[in-house]
Simulated assay, not measured.
Amino acid sequence: MRSLSSWSTCLVPALVVLGGCERQEERPAPTRSAPAPVKASTPAPIAPSQSTTEQELRERLRCEALLGLSGLLAGQQEYFGEKDAWTADVTRLPTPAACTDGSRVPTPPDEAWLAGCHFRYAVSVAGSTPNDSTFSVRAVGVGGLAEGLTYTLTHGYSDGKTVRVWPSELVLEDCHGVRRPEGTPLPAPLCEGASNLKALFTAEKSYCGEKDRYSESAAQVGFLPEPCLDGSRAPVPDDTWTAGCRFIYRAEVSGTAPEQTFLLTALGVSGAVVDRKLTLDSQYAWSPADPGCAP
Protein backbone atom coordinates (compact mmCIF):
# COMPACT_ATOMS: atom_id res chain seq x y z
CA MET A 1 0.00 0.00 0.00
CA ARG A 2 1.33 3.42 -0.95
CA SER A 3 2.20 5.59 2.02
CA LEU A 4 0.47 8.88 2.63
CA SER A 5 3.76 10.70 2.12
CA SER A 6 4.16 9.34 -1.39
CA TRP A 7 0.81 10.85 -2.35
CA SER A 8 1.37 14.17 -0.67
CA THR A 9 4.06 15.61 -2.96
CA CYS A 10 2.09 15.23 -6.16
CA LEU A 11 -1.37 15.87 -4.70
CA VAL A 12 -1.37 18.34 -1.82
CA PRO A 13 0.61 21.30 -3.29
CA ALA A 14 -1.58 21.29 -6.38
CA LEU A 15 -4.91 21.37 -4.54
CA VAL A 16 -4.71 25.14 -4.54
CA VAL A 17 -4.84 25.26 -8.32
CA LEU A 18 -6.50 22.64 -10.50
CA GLY A 19 -7.23 19.84 -8.11
CA GLY A 20 -3.63 18.63 -7.91
CA CYS A 21 -2.61 15.27 -9.27
CA GLU A 22 -5.81 13.35 -8.71
CA ARG A 23 -7.59 11.32 -11.37
CA GLN A 24 -9.51 13.52 -13.73
CA GLU A 25 -13.22 12.85 -14.16
CA GLU A 26 -14.55 12.96 -17.68
CA ARG A 27 -16.32 16.16 -18.48
CA PRO A 28 -19.90 15.85 -19.65
CA ALA A 29 -20.35 16.22 -23.38
CA PRO A 30 -21.23 19.80 -24.32
CA THR A 31 -24.83 20.43 -25.22
CA ARG A 32 -25.59 22.01 -28.54
CA SER A 33 -28.31 24.55 -28.96
CA ALA A 34 -30.10 25.29 -32.18
CA PRO A 35 -28.60 28.20 -34.15
CA ALA A 36 -30.38 31.52 -33.97
CA PRO A 37 -32.75 32.31 -36.85
CA VAL A 38 -30.98 33.91 -39.78
CA LYS A 39 -31.92 37.45 -40.49
CA ALA A 40 -31.45 37.83 -44.23
CA SER A 41 -30.80 41.25 -45.60
CA THR A 42 -28.61 43.21 -47.89
CA PRO A 43 -25.03 43.14 -46.54
CA ALA A 44 -24.34 46.20 -44.45
CA PRO A 45 -21.50 48.48 -45.54
CA ILE A 46 -18.32 48.04 -43.55
CA ALA A 47 -17.58 50.97 -41.26
CA PRO A 48 -13.78 51.35 -41.22
CA SER A 49 -12.21 52.39 -37.93
CA GLN A 50 -9.67 54.82 -39.33
CA SER A 51 -9.66 54.68 -43.09
CA THR A 52 -12.24 54.63 -45.89
CA THR A 53 -9.87 53.40 -48.60
CA GLU A 54 -10.89 50.42 -50.70
CA GLN A 55 -7.75 48.59 -49.59
CA GLU A 56 -8.79 48.99 -45.95
CA LEU A 57 -12.28 47.65 -46.67
CA ARG A 58 -10.90 44.66 -48.57
CA GLU A 59 -8.55 43.86 -45.70
CA ARG A 60 -11.50 43.87 -43.30
CA LEU A 61 -13.39 41.51 -45.61
CA ARG A 62 -10.46 39.11 -45.74
CA CYS A 63 -10.30 39.12 -41.95
CA GLU A 64 -14.03 38.45 -41.72
CA ALA A 65 -13.62 35.42 -43.99
CA LEU A 66 -10.60 34.27 -41.98
CA LEU A 67 -12.59 34.39 -38.74
CA GLY A 68 -15.55 32.62 -40.32
CA LEU A 69 -13.44 29.77 -41.73
CA SER A 70 -11.36 29.37 -38.56
CA GLY A 71 -14.55 29.21 -36.46
CA LEU A 72 -15.99 26.47 -38.67
CA LEU A 73 -12.67 24.60 -38.58
CA ALA A 74 -12.81 24.65 -34.76
CA GLY A 75 -16.44 23.51 -34.85
CA GLN A 76 -15.62 20.57 -37.13
CA GLN A 77 -12.69 19.54 -34.93
CA GLU A 78 -14.94 19.57 -31.86
CA TYR A 79 -17.56 17.47 -33.69
CA PHE A 80 -14.88 15.02 -34.90
CA GLY A 81 -13.62 14.62 -31.33
CA GLU A 82 -17.10 13.42 -30.32
CA LYS A 83 -18.19 11.45 -33.40
CA ASP A 84 -14.97 10.43 -35.22
CA ALA A 85 -16.46 11.95 -38.36
CA TRP A 86 -16.89 15.32 -40.05
CA THR A 87 -20.35 16.75 -40.57
CA ALA A 88 -22.04 18.39 -43.54
CA ASP A 89 -24.98 19.36 -41.32
CA VAL A 90 -24.50 23.10 -40.87
CA THR A 91 -26.85 23.13 -37.86
CA ARG A 92 -24.16 21.24 -35.93
CA LEU A 93 -21.58 23.94 -36.60
CA PRO A 94 -21.11 27.44 -35.10
CA THR A 95 -22.89 30.24 -36.93
CA PRO A 96 -20.52 32.94 -38.25
CA ALA A 97 -20.90 36.41 -36.78
CA ALA A 98 -23.54 38.77 -38.10
CA CYS A 99 -22.92 42.42 -38.93
CA THR A 100 -22.87 44.84 -36.02
CA ASP A 101 -26.51 45.74 -36.72
CA GLY A 102 -27.51 42.04 -36.59
CA SER A 103 -28.06 41.65 -40.34
CA ARG A 104 -26.73 38.77 -42.44
CA VAL A 105 -26.37 38.00 -46.13
CA PRO A 106 -29.26 36.11 -47.76
CA THR A 107 -28.78 32.41 -48.55
CA PRO A 108 -30.28 30.32 -51.39
CA PRO A 109 -33.57 28.77 -50.21
CA ASP A 110 -32.84 25.36 -51.73
CA GLU A 111 -29.36 24.78 -50.28
CA ALA A 112 -27.81 24.50 -46.82
CA TRP A 113 -25.68 27.53 -46.08
CA LEU A 114 -24.49 29.40 -43.02
CA ALA A 115 -24.97 33.16 -43.28
CA GLY A 116 -22.43 35.63 -41.94
CA CYS A 117 -22.16 39.39 -42.39
CA HIS A 118 -20.70 39.66 -45.92
CA PHE A 119 -20.11 35.96 -46.63
CA ARG A 120 -22.16 32.78 -46.74
CA TYR A 121 -20.58 29.39 -46.10
CA ALA A 122 -21.21 25.94 -47.60
CA VAL A 123 -19.85 22.71 -46.09
CA SER A 124 -19.12 19.39 -47.84
CA VAL A 125 -17.58 16.10 -46.66
CA ALA A 126 -15.56 13.56 -48.67
CA GLY A 127 -14.66 10.03 -47.55
CA SER A 128 -16.23 7.90 -44.87
CA THR A 129 -13.60 6.55 -42.48
CA PRO A 130 -12.01 8.63 -39.69
CA ASN A 131 -8.50 8.19 -41.11
CA ASP A 132 -9.44 8.86 -44.71
CA SER A 133 -11.96 11.70 -44.86
CA THR A 134 -11.91 15.46 -45.30
CA PHE A 135 -14.32 18.36 -45.18
CA SER A 136 -14.33 21.61 -47.15
CA VAL A 137 -15.83 24.99 -46.31
CA ARG A 138 -16.46 27.49 -49.09
CA ALA A 139 -16.87 31.17 -48.15
CA VAL A 140 -18.68 33.17 -50.83
CA GLY A 141 -18.86 36.96 -50.67
CA VAL A 142 -22.24 38.62 -51.30
CA GLY A 143 -22.80 42.24 -52.36
CA GLY A 144 -20.56 45.29 -52.65
CA LEU A 145 -16.82 44.74 -52.46
CA ALA A 146 -17.41 41.21 -51.17
CA GLU A 147 -19.15 40.13 -54.39
CA GLY A 148 -16.99 37.62 -56.26
CA LEU A 149 -14.69 36.85 -53.33
CA THR A 150 -14.46 33.10 -52.70
CA TYR A 151 -12.19 31.26 -50.26
CA THR A 152 -12.05 27.51 -49.62
CA LEU A 153 -10.66 25.62 -46.62
CA THR A 154 -10.07 21.84 -46.72
CA HIS A 155 -9.04 19.82 -43.67
CA GLY A 156 -9.02 16.18 -42.59
CA TYR A 157 -7.04 12.99 -43.05
CA SER A 158 -5.71 11.01 -45.99
CA ASP A 159 -4.33 7.55 -45.20
CA GLY A 160 -4.08 8.63 -41.57
CA LYS A 161 -2.04 11.76 -42.33
CA THR A 162 -3.33 15.26 -41.63
CA VAL A 163 -4.30 17.29 -44.68
CA ARG A 164 -5.00 21.02 -44.58
CA VAL A 165 -5.35 23.46 -47.44
CA TRP A 166 -5.85 27.04 -46.25
CA PRO A 167 -6.48 30.05 -48.55
CA SER A 168 -3.10 31.72 -48.94
CA GLU A 169 -4.72 35.17 -49.13
CA LEU A 170 -6.04 34.92 -45.57
CA VAL A 171 -3.09 35.72 -43.33
CA LEU A 172 -3.59 35.67 -39.57
CA GLU A 173 -1.03 38.38 -38.84
CA ASP A 174 -2.89 40.82 -41.08
CA CYS A 175 -5.94 40.55 -38.83
CA HIS A 176 -4.29 41.69 -35.61
CA GLY A 177 -4.13 45.37 -34.81
CA VAL A 178 -6.59 48.21 -35.26
CA ARG A 179 -8.64 46.72 -38.10
CA ARG A 180 -11.28 44.52 -36.50
CA PRO A 181 -13.45 42.42 -38.79
CA GLU A 182 -17.08 41.63 -38.02
CA GLY A 183 -17.29 39.18 -35.14
CA THR A 184 -15.19 38.44 -32.09
CA PRO A 185 -11.81 40.22 -32.15
CA LEU A 186 -8.77 38.01 -32.46
CA PRO A 187 -6.85 37.37 -29.25
CA ALA A 188 -3.43 38.93 -28.87
CA PRO A 189 -0.62 36.83 -30.41
CA LEU A 190 0.79 36.22 -26.91
CA CYS A 191 -2.40 34.34 -26.02
CA GLU A 192 -1.39 31.41 -28.21
CA GLY A 193 1.51 30.69 -25.86
CA ALA A 194 -0.47 31.36 -22.67
CA SER A 195 -3.47 29.22 -23.66
CA ASN A 196 -1.29 26.31 -24.70
CA LEU A 197 0.71 26.48 -21.46
CA LYS A 198 -2.56 26.14 -19.55
CA ALA A 199 -3.45 23.13 -21.70
CA LEU A 200 -0.04 21.56 -21.06
CA PHE A 201 -0.40 22.22 -17.31
CA THR A 202 -3.76 20.39 -17.31
CA ALA A 203 -2.27 17.52 -19.34
CA GLU A 204 0.59 17.12 -16.83
CA LYS A 205 -1.80 17.07 -13.86
CA SER A 206 -4.05 14.51 -15.58
CA TYR A 207 -1.07 12.30 -16.41
CA CYS A 208 0.16 12.49 -12.82
CA GLY A 209 -3.29 11.51 -11.63
CA GLU A 210 -2.99 8.29 -13.62
CA LYS A 211 0.73 7.48 -13.38
CA ASP A 212 1.77 9.17 -10.09
CA ARG A 213 4.51 11.09 -11.86
CA TYR A 214 5.04 13.89 -14.36
CA SER A 215 6.59 13.51 -17.81
CA GLU A 216 8.77 15.65 -20.08
CA SER A 217 7.23 13.99 -23.15
CA ALA A 218 4.43 16.05 -24.70
CA ALA A 219 3.22 12.99 -26.63
CA GLN A 220 3.12 10.94 -23.43
CA VAL A 221 0.88 13.40 -21.60
CA GLY A 222 -1.28 13.95 -24.70
CA PHE A 223 -0.29 17.54 -25.53
CA LEU A 224 -0.28 18.65 -29.18
CA PRO A 225 -0.92 22.35 -29.82
CA GLU A 226 -2.71 23.53 -32.94
CA PRO A 227 -0.54 24.49 -35.93
CA CYS A 228 -0.98 27.73 -37.87
CA LEU A 229 -4.14 28.04 -39.92
CA ASP A 230 -2.26 26.86 -43.01
CA GLY A 231 -1.10 23.73 -41.17
CA SER A 232 2.53 24.82 -40.71
CA ARG A 233 4.38 24.70 -37.39
CA ALA A 234 7.26 26.64 -35.86
CA PRO A 235 10.76 25.14 -36.16
CA VAL A 236 12.14 23.46 -33.01
CA PRO A 237 15.84 23.32 -32.00
CA ASP A 238 15.63 19.70 -30.76
CA ASP A 239 13.16 16.99 -29.79
CA THR A 240 12.70 18.31 -26.26
CA TRP A 241 10.43 20.99 -27.75
CA THR A 242 6.94 20.69 -29.23
CA ALA A 243 5.89 23.07 -32.01
CA GLY A 244 2.74 25.13 -32.19
CA CYS A 245 2.21 27.98 -34.65
CA ARG A 246 4.31 30.91 -33.36
CA PHE A 247 5.42 29.28 -30.09
CA ILE A 248 7.35 26.16 -29.13
CA TYR A 249 6.83 24.37 -25.79
CA ARG A 250 8.89 22.33 -23.33
CA ALA A 251 8.29 20.59 -20.00
CA GLU A 252 11.15 20.13 -17.51
CA VAL A 253 10.58 17.76 -14.58
CA SER A 254 12.63 17.89 -11.38
CA GLY A 255 12.87 15.36 -8.55
CA THR A 256 12.06 11.68 -8.29
CA ALA A 257 8.50 10.37 -8.33
CA PRO A 258 6.37 10.87 -6.40
CA GLU A 259 8.26 13.94 -5.14
CA GLN A 260 8.35 15.91 -8.38
CA THR A 261 7.76 19.40 -9.73
CA PHE A 262 7.69 20.71 -13.27
CA LEU A 263 8.39 23.92 -15.20
CA LEU A 264 6.64 24.57 -18.50
CA THR A 265 8.04 27.02 -21.07
CA ALA A 266 6.51 28.68 -24.13
CA LEU A 267 9.01 30.46 -26.40
CA GLY A 268 7.93 32.70 -29.27
CA VAL A 269 9.85 32.08 -32.49
CA SER A 270 8.03 34.04 -35.19
CA GLY A 271 6.01 37.17 -35.94
CA ALA A 272 5.12 39.61 -33.18
CA VAL A 273 6.13 37.19 -30.39
CA VAL A 274 9.74 36.45 -31.37
CA ASP A 275 11.82 35.87 -28.21
CA ARG A 276 8.80 36.29 -25.92
CA LYS A 277 9.01 33.73 -23.13
CA LEU A 278 6.35 32.51 -20.71
CA THR A 279 6.80 29.94 -17.94
CA LEU A 280 4.28 28.15 -15.71
CA ASP A 281 5.27 25.81 -12.87
CA SER A 282 3.53 22.97 -11.04
CA GLN A 283 2.25 25.42 -8.41
CA TYR A 284 0.59 27.47 -11.19
CA ALA A 285 3.04 30.35 -10.77
CA TRP A 286 3.54 32.39 -13.97
CA SER A 287 6.56 34.34 -15.12
CA PRO A 288 5.82 37.02 -16.16
CA ALA A 289 2.34 37.34 -14.66
CA ASP A 290 -0.57 35.38 -16.13
CA PRO A 291 -1.55 37.21 -19.36
CA GLY A 292 -5.18 36.39 -18.56
CA CYS A 293 -5.97 34.71 -21.89
CA ALA A 294 -8.80 32.19 -22.09
CA PRO A 295 -7.74 28.52 -22.14
Rank of each mutant, 00 (worst) to 15 (best):
S8L: 12
C10Q: 05
L11Q: 02
A14N: 09
V17E: 05
G19V: 12
E22M: 10
E25P: 15
R27V: 10
A29D: 03
R32M: 05
V38H: 12
K39A: 09
K39D: 07
A47L: 15
S49T: 11
S51G: 03
T52D: 07
Q55A: 15
R60T: 11
L61F: 05
R62V: 10
C63T: 07
A65H: 05
L69D: 03
L69K: 06
L69G: 03
S70N: 10
G71E: 08
L73C: 02
A74V: 03
Q76T: 03
Q76I: 09
Q76E: 09
F80T: 04
G81Y: 02
E82P: 00
A85L: 12
A85H: 13
T91H: 04
A97M: 01
A98L: 05
V105G: 03
C117N: 01
C117R: 01
H118T: 10
F119W: 15
Y121P: 02
V123F: 14
D132T: 06
F135C: 07
S136K: 11
A139T: 05
G141S: 11
G141D: 10
G143D: 08
L145H: 05
E147L: 14
Y151W: 13
T154I: 12
T154S: 11
H155F: 11
G156E: 01
G156L: 14
Y157W: 14
S158E: 13
V165T: 09
E169H: 08
E169D: 15
L170Y: 02
L172G: 02
D174R: 14
V178M: 09
R179G: 08
R179F: 13
R180S: 07
G183I: 12
T184C: 04
T184W: 10
P185Q: 12
L200G: 00
Y207S: 09
K211S: 11
D212I: 03
G222C: 10
R233Q: 13
A234Y: 00
V236T: 04
D238P: 02
R250Q: 12
E252K: 13
V253K: 01
V253W: 04
S254K: 14
A257V: 09
L263Y: 06
D281H: 06
D281S: 07
Y284D: 03
P288M: 01
P288I: 00
P291V: 01
G292M: 00
C293H: 00
A294M: 07
